[in-house]
Structure formats: structure tokens, C-alpha cells
Design a protein around this nucleic acid. Structure first.
Length: 210
DNA sequence: GTACAGATAAACT
DNA sequence: GTTTATCTGTACA
């Protein structure tokens, strides 16, 4: 089973992000393996990017962003959910790719039980809704702050290469109020597993054949 | 299908 | 004290 190595992440973030689409994110945790095909990501790069956590400079929280490429940057958002990033570029250059949505592949039962329990639902969460959002996918894979700073070139959390999507679309990033002029969200425009947002219909950049 | 309100905690001003 | 890279249930079309 091959996995993406350090050099893969040590590149321009706008190059890495679209290439992660189609790759497989795997978490081998205490309960077993859960994995999914990456179908949606966003770029956050530099202290000049007002939406990047590094815009406020280096702090205890943002330290991983400044660290070695190929590590996990996980943070708590809205007091309830976690978001997973893959750190890119060399040390000292705060930059990362936010993993926003997965098509579930392995460990569907584990994902379903974790998601159903946390969402306090009576009926099981549908497959399509298991990981179609950054908070949902962390819950589905069982990722928490414990996994922050984890080396992605390791045997707990890693990404495997995969077939690229036929079509990729770009839009502004979701859920932010600054930096919306940059089209730094990209997704597999033919996948039903992307986070559902009206932005999908208003893709500013035309889908591009690969 | 879209449009809200509310939950909830740490980082930041 | 305010903000936040979210999600869910409810209301309504």
C-alpha cells in the first residue's frame, strides 16, 4: 500500500490541493480502519491570507501550520467540531489543505455508528452524509485534537494516491467572511459526496477536464 | 428544495 | 466580550 511522502506536501499548496482529489485518506485507529476518497478541499496559505489562521501570526494553536510539511493540523471549531488539514510547504511557510469531504470507502459501519451517536440521531446517518463536511469527516474517522500534529508519513493517519476525478470545479471557500475573493475551494464536480452548498451550482471557475 | 436559530468552547481582541 | 475554516432540527415553499 503506497502512501504520499514528505516531498508531495512540500510544494505550492495550490498545486497540492487539486491533486489530493481522488486520493484516499486512511485512519488506522484503535477501533480499526476507516477511510474515504477525498472529493473536496480548500487552500489556506500564508499570513497574507486573511482567512488563514496564520493571519494572526504564530501562536500555540497555529504552530503546526508553520511546521514540517506532511503533518496533520487539527483544530476545534464552533466549540463542537474538528477540522483536519494537511500541512504543506517547507517549515516557516504557514500553509495547509483543509480536507472538506470524503466518499466513504472502508469502515462504513464504524463511521455510521460514530456519526449517528454524536448527532444523537434515532435513524442511522445515510452513507452520503457520513463525511460530506469537514466536521463530519473528522467525526466519521474518529479524529480529535489527539491527532493534531500527527505525521502523515506514518502508520496511523496517511493519504494514498488515487485516480484523479474527471472534472474539478473551483469556488470561493466556504464559511468564511474574509478572503472570499480567492477561488481556493476545489472539488470533484461529479461526486455526490461533496458538502452540499449552493456554491456548487455557482462554481465561478468552469469545471476543467483533467 | 432554501432559510434560519441554536448548540458550545477555545482563541483572540 | 467577540469571533469562529460547522452541523442539525425546524419551518416553510
Amino acid at each position: 500500500m503506497s502512501r504520499l511522502g514528505r516531498d508531495y506536501y512540500d510544494r505550492d499548496t495550490l498545486e497540492v490541493a487539486p491533486e489530493l482529489l481522488g486520493c484516499t485518506l486512511v485512519h488506522d485507529g484503535p477501533d480499526g480502519v476507516a477511510s474515504g476518497r477525498i472529493v473536496e478541499v480548500e487552500v489556506y496559505q500564508g499570513e497574507d491570507d486573511p482567512a488563514c489562521h496564520a493571519a494572526a501570526g504564530q501562536t500555540d494553536r497555529t504552530e503546526p501550520l508553520y511546521g514540517q510539511p506532511g503533518h496533520a493540523y487539527i483544530y476545534l471549531i464552533y466549540g463542537m467540531y474538528y477540522c483536519l488539514n494537511a500541512v504543506t510547504r517547507a517549515e516557516g511557510l504557514p500553509s495547509a489543505v483543509l480536507i472538506r469531504a470524503l466518499e466513504p470507502l472502508d469502515g462504513l459501519d464504524r463511521m455510521r455508528s460514530r456519526r449517528t451517536a454524536r448527532a444523537r440521531r434515532r435513524t442511522p446517518v445515510a452513507d452520503r452524509d457520513l463525511a460530506n463536511g469537514p466536521g463530519k469527516l473528522c467525526d466519521a474517522l474518529g479524529l480529535t485534537l489527539e491527532h493534531n500534529r500527527l505525521d502523515l508519513i506514518g502508520d496511523t493517519l496517511w493519504i494514498e494516491p488515487g485516480a484523479p476525478p474527471a472534472e474539478v470545479a473551483w469556488t470561493p471557500r466556504v464559511g468564511i467572511k474574509v478572503g472570499t475573493d480567492r477561488l481556493w475551494r476545489c472539488f470533484d464536480s461529479q461526486s455526490p459526496y461533496v458538502s452540499r452548498t449552493r456554491l456548487n451550482h455557482e462554481a465561478v471557475a468552469e469545471p476543467r477536464q483533467l
